[in-house]
Structures are given as structure tokens and as C-alpha cells.
Amino acid sequence: MKKMKINGAFLNANRAWIFLIVVMIIGVFTPKFYTAYNIKAITGNNTLFIWLACGFTICMIAGNMDLTVQYCSTFAALICLGTHSRQKWPWLICILVAVLMGVIVGMINGLLVTKLKISAFIATLGMQFILRGLMYLYAPDEQSIGRDMAANEFLNDKLIKFLPFSAYFLICLIAVLIVWIFLRWTRTGRNVYMIGGNIETAWLAGVKSSRITILTFVISSVLCALGGALNGIFSGAANISMGEKGISPLMIGMTATIIGGTDTSGGSGSVLNTFITMIALAFLKGIFKKTEMQVLVISIIMILCIAYETIAAFRRSKILGIRPNLRNEYLREKGKA
């Protein structure tokens, strides 16, 4: 049986779970924290962020950043509720139209990065502004759109009412598991890690890196679009300015990705860890009720994670070139192996 050793590397590898456990322990000392209503409310209010965080994670594993996640989800919500209220289309068609928008956005992002060789940061930043402009064109005089309360009340009040979380959260959980299985157990999924780790090695191994990169952007945008559309339906309205004035959903997604252990330069990470971190962040927000405190605590945690990774990378770079057998012998002598 393999001996488990609790050291810095172990703690770092499991930091998402440790973060969640610590937050849950703090929750014990928070009045009225572990109530069914609170858990349902906390998970429900943060589900959209989980979709965005998972989308962001996939791109980051592939070594890219997708800054369109927030606007893609908002635009999807507007399209979904807009087509339902204006064109009177059934919900399923509205969701599909929103998801199709996500596919197009992801394709464009991917093509800009792979074919035009534009940095993902710049390409998705530009796309973010385009989406923003399109949103204001789509809903020029409206702060919000939609308001189908019948669907909203059915989904929130009647569907799986016995569970301590909403149907929206359950759908999100299923989506996360599907993406996790795809990344971990399929060849294409493993190739995402390979191109993120070292794109040249991936190329030498015969991986079609452009195709995989485009695929990651499409998956990211589809997740965000689906999450945004469902969020609009479940909350009954879509707000054009969502996240523009408070804590940016993009920042929350990025934070969950980084704290969840995804390497900022790509090649490693897990949507499941991002999901766990996002739950921990949601609980943390429930504990620190004031927005100022939430921002402060989350930022400190993220900085600690980044600082650890930077130091670890520096230490790794110092031993590059050392023969592994000698290094292992040295570590055994020092009792660190």
C-alpha cells in the first residue's frame, strides 16, 4: 500500500478539498449557516459562477485564457429570454439558440488564437467587447429582459423541491461531471492536457493542436452559454449589466480556477477541483456577508496560492538538469524522499 505523506506537495495537490473543509468548519461557528434554506440559496446563487469557472478552467488547462465567459453567459441569457418573450419560441429552442451563439463565439475565439496566432488574452478581450456591443444592440432600452414567471416558479418551487439544492445546480453538477470524464478518460481530453503542457511535444506526438484548442474554446463558450441561458430561466430575468458593477463573475471564475490548482501556464488542472473550490468560495461568501470582506478574503487566498506556485516553480527550475537518480539519492539522505 502506498504510504501517504502529508507535506507541502500533498497539501497543494489537494488544496481545493482542504479549502472546502476549512470553510465548512468555519461554517459550524457561523450562526444559521447549516440550514437547508441557506445551503440551497448559497449553491443556487453561485451556480452561474460554477459554469463560468469550469469553462475558464478548460481553456486554462489548454494553456489559454477565455475572457469572454461572463459576456457569453449574459448574452446567452438575453437571447434565451428574448427569443422566448419576443418570438414566443419554446424554451428548448431558445436554449438551443443561446447555445448556438456559444458555439459561434467559441469557434471565433479558437480561430483567432489558432489561425491568426493572436494571443488568447487579446483575442478574447476583443471578443468580450464585441459581445458587449451586441448585447446593447439586442436590448437597447432594457435593463433586463424576459420575466416568464410561470417557468420560473415551476422550476424553483415545484421541481425537485425535496433536495437541498435547486434543479439548476443539479444540471450544473451533471455538466461538470461530463466535462471531467471527458478530460480525464477520453483521448481528446488527455490531448487537452498535452497541448497545455507542451504544445511542441503534443505536435510531435501527432496531436492536432489547433483542433483541440478550438474545441476547448467551444466547450468553454457552450458551458457559459448554457449556464447563462438556464440562469435566465431560473431567475426569471436576464440583466444586461450582470457583473459589471459588483464582483465580476469572470474574476470569480478565474479565482476558482487558480485556487483549484489549474496551472496558469496550462497542462494541469481539473474541473472537479474548480467545482469544489467554487463551492468553497460560495460558502465563504455566505460566511463573510459583506461584499468588502468577501473580496478581501478571496483575494488573499488567491495571492497565497499564486505565491506558493511561484515559489514551487522557482525551486523546480533550480534543480532542472540535475540527474534524477542523484537527486533522489540526495532527497533520501535528507529524509525528504
Partner: peptide, 17 residues
């Protein structure tokens, strides 16, 4: 909630709790 709709929704749930 600093002008954020989702934060306000969260605060309402928190207040109810």
C-alpha cells in the same frame, strides 16, 4: 450589494435565512 443583481439576490436569501 454594490449595484450587482446577483449579489443582491444573495443578500436577500441571506437575510431570509
Amino acid at each position: 450589494p454594490n449595484w450587482d443583481q446577483s449579489v443582491q439576490d444573495g443578500y436577500i436569501d441571506q437575510a431570509i435565512n
